[in-house]
Measured scan of single mutants.
Amino acid sequence: HNLTITQGKLFFHYNPKLCLSEIHKMEEVSGTKGRQERNDIALKTNGDQASCENELLKFSYIRTSFDKILLRWEPYWPPDFRDLLGFMLFYKEAPYQNVTEFDGQDACGSNSWTVVDIDPPLRSNDPKSQNHPGWLMRGLKPWTQYAIFVKTLVTFSDERRTYGAKSDIIYVQTDATNPSVPLDPISVSNSSSQIILKWKPPSDPNGNITHYLVFWERQAEDSELFELDYCLKGLKLPSRTWSPPFESEDSQKHNQSEYEDSAGECCSCPKTDSQILKELEESSFRKTFEDYLHNVVFVPRKTSSGTGAEDPRPSRKRRSLGDVGNVTVAVPTVAAFPNTSSTSVPTSPEEHRPFEKVVNKESLVISGLRHFTGYRIELQACNQDTPEERCSVAAYVSARTMPEAKADDIVGPVTHEIFENNVVHLMWQEPKEPNGLIVLYEVSYRRYGDEELHLCVSRKHFALERGCRLRGLSPGNYSVRIRATSLAGNGSWTEPTYFYVTDYLDVPSNIA
């Protein structure tokens, strides 16, 4: 807008934040220059609390790290170098490059900038070799853009010569660093050979998330399962459950009422301010606690030095998902009996873990797994792929695949051998790939016309006998059925096997 004052003059007093240069501009645009008398524009009460600059400061050096910015700028000295009290560095987070010096300023003089007072450097006698002032900004957020400017702080001049310097606002972004852990990993099994893994992005990506790394490792069953005799009275049979499938998407929606109208769909109840505040506090606490764990609990591995020492970490090797089922080394339970199943799973520490690289999504279907087997899954978020990966501390989750139908069934015939004193040795093959492992066998036998009897055969007993022995049988026709019990439950009964026990007292003698 054009402003013209045809008559009258300007009068400025007691404006401590208004620089004289701005008042002189007002004289020019209003056409009143030359009308004012000496005392109409006070030299001592206008701009006496402001830094009124008329020179431009330029930054000469900028260096960044993930949490620091090192700045240096060209030296500046007023005509009387004693008038320079120091520099004021202003900075704040700036997602967009549209910041002005006066953003967030209120009537009390406060604003949204963080201000650092910096002492002037030592003055050199040689004007050509003056030290460049600077400042190291610490405690910054990774991968965050900051708006920065600097200006001088000078003393009051009796001659009211307006001098000083100020830089333009520059924008500097800190470097990326390792992201925080992925949030809320959930693993479920939808079949006997697959596990579905879902997660949420890290709360602090500290860069642009480029991919996720998912490692999985087959877990050995508890050692007590191999040692305890679950045929003993009072000892509860062990059981394991597989990871249940995901709930429906509708039930997972946030901010939804727990109660549904019987007449149909209901609208979600909005969260109160107290609920939102509580969630923010919980989120802040979780982030602080995660940072504490990362800094205190997890110790970084030592990389190899120039002395030739090897990095103890196993090298990563990509495998196809079809090879995942046989990740671990199978060892027989008892070496003397080769027909026992290889369900003991000690994992070799030198073995390469299978892994998958996930790009542009937060889910993965891990296939080719062994049925009813526990897996430990390790999830890392990465925001750099080359020249070397920059990934987060791992988040861990466990899951067990679903049982395989008929995996616990005894394959092959049940054979028998009759000894003296009416002892019958029953023999059968253990299931080759049971659900988890076989903890015991149930032997059901009966003599024709009598009630059915049951015998429990422990895992250890089966390994020693290759089956079991029935003792003290009365003469007669017998039928026997056997079924295995694994961590997933009972298998199917075998087809009945028949044998006849004679009275050993009636056996004919070869003595003449």
Rank of each mutant, 00 (worst) to 15 (best):
S398Q: 09
V214I: 12
N422I: 02
V297T: 03
N435F: 04
T303M: 07
K278H: 01
K317W: 08
S248I: 13
T347L: 14
N339G: 08
S283Q: 14
K253V: 06
S474A: 10
R218K: 05
V331I: 13
N295M: 05
A407K: 04
G325H: 08
E249H: 07
G264P: 07
G476L: 01
V501G: 01
A263Q: 13
Y292T: 03
H416A: 07
E260G: 06
S320N: 11
W216R: 09
M427H: 15
Q275G: 04
S262P: 11
A395M: 10
I209M: 15
D503S: 14
P431F: 03
Y259F: 13
R301G: 07
A263D: 09
G476A: 03
P354F: 10
A407T: 09
V299Y: 03
F462T: 05
C231Q: 04
F419L: 13
E310Y: 14
E378M: 07
T386A: 09
Y504S: 10
F372Y: 05
V297K: 05
E227M: 11
F285S: 07
V423A: 09
F289P: 02
F215G: 08
Y212I: 09
P238F: 06
K361I: 09
V327F: 12
S243C: 12
S248A: 10
G207C: 01
V334H: 09
D450T: 08
L440K: 04
Q252D: 14
T288G: 06
K361A: 10
V457C: 15
K357N: 07
A309I: 12
D261S: 10
G234E: 13
E224Q: 15
V439M: 06
E388P: 08
D503E: 11
R313T: 07
P245M: 06
T343A: 13
E417A: 12
E265D: 14
T340R: 07
S341D: 05
V334I: 14
Y448L: 09
T272M: 10
K287C: 02
E404V: 14
V359Q: 12
N360D: 09
Y504R: 05
T272A: 05
A381F: 04
G436D: 06
E351S: 13
T386L: 15
P475A: 10
I209E: 09
K357S: 14
N255E: 07
S257F: 08
E388G: 11
Y504A: 12
A394P: 08
S239M: 11
S284Y: 00
S474M: 10
G325V: 10
S367C: 14
S262F: 11
L487F: 02
L440A: 07
V331P: 13
T347I: 14
K287T: 04
E442S: 14
A405Q: 03
L487V: 07
P354E: 09
D450W: 11
R400T: 05
R400H: 10
P354Y: 15
L277Y: 01
T288I: 15
Y396M: 08
S243F: 11
T373S: 09
L505I: 09
D311P: 13
S283Y: 11
L235M: 11
N326F: 14
S243Y: 12
V331K: 13
G467K: 10
V393Q: 01
S248C: 15
R446A: 11
R469A: 10
G472V: 13
S474K: 10
E465K: 08
R459F: 05
L440S: 02
S315F: 13
P387M: 14
S305A: 09
I410P: 07
E404T: 07
Y396A: 07
N435L: 00
S268E: 12
Y445P: 03
S342A: 14
Y448V: 12
S344V: 06
P508K: 14
V359W: 08
S342P: 06
D273V: 15
D323F: 15
P434S: 07
K317S: 11
G436W: 07
R483T: 02
C468R: 11
V393M: 12
P245G: 08
T303A: 06
L505K: 11
W242C: 04
F337G: 05
A395T: 06
V501Y: 11
G489S: 05
A395S: 10
Y375A: 08
L237A: 08
T303Y: 15
S283L: 12
S344L: 10
V324T: 05
K233N: 15
H352I: 05
E452H: 15
S320W: 06
P205D: 15
R316T: 11
R469Y: 07
N477V: 06
Y445H: 08
K287Y: 04
Y504W: 08
G325F: 09
P475R: 09
E495K: 09
F372H: 08
E356I: 07
L321P: 08
P431I: 00
A395G: 09
L455N: 13
T343H: 11
R471P: 08
V345A: 10
S257T: 08
Y498W: 10
S283K: 15
V501N: 06
G368M: 09
K271I: 06
I482F: 02
R471L: 06
T497A: 08
L321N: 13
V331H: 15
Y212R: 03
V457M: 07
V414A: 06
S223T: 09
T373A: 08
L455T: 12
T241P: 14
A488L: 13
E217L: 15
E452D: 03
R319Y: 10
V327G: 05
N477H: 11
T340H: 04
G374S: 07
S248Q: 15
S257I: 06
E282L: 05
L277D: 03
R400V: 05
E404K: 15
L505S: 09
D408T: 06
V359C: 13
Q256Y: 08
A220P: 09
E279T: 05
E452L: 10
W242I: 02
C266W: 10
L369W: 02
N360I: 15
D204S: 15
V365W: 06
R301H: 04
C269Y: 05
S251T: 11
H425N: 13
K460E: 10
T307G: 05
L232W: 04
S223E: 14
R447I: 10
E433K: 03
F226P: 06
P205W: 08
K287V: 05
P349E: 00
C266N: 10
R483A: 04
E495W: 10
M427G: 11
E249R: 04
D408W: 01
V345C: 13
T241N: 15
P244R: 15
K432L: 09
L464S: 14
E221D: 06
P314V: 05
Y441P: 02
S342L: 15
S342K: 09
N421K: 13
R218W: 14
C266K: 11
R286V: 04
V345I: 08
D323V: 06
E452Y: 14
C231F: 03
Y375L: 15
S251N: 07
N360Y: 10
K460M: 12
R466P: 06
V365S: 11
A407R: 09
L277H: 07
L280P: 14
L232A: 12
G207L: 02
V359H: 14
E362H: 07
D222Q: 13
H371T: 15
Q384T: 10
I209Q: 13
A399L: 09
N490H: 14
L228F: 08
F285K: 10
V414D: 00
S492P: 12
K406P: 08
E362L: 11
V439I: 10
D506S: 13
Y498K: 12
I366N: 00
N477A: 13
R459S: 08
V424K: 03
Y500E: 03
A309G: 11
E279Q: 04
E433V: 15
F215R: 07
F337K: 08
P354C: 14
S341M: 13
A330S: 15
P332G: 08
E433T: 15
N422P: 02
C231V: 05
Y292E: 04
S257Y: 08
R481Y: 09
K302C: 14
T307Q: 09
L379M: 07
E247Q: 11
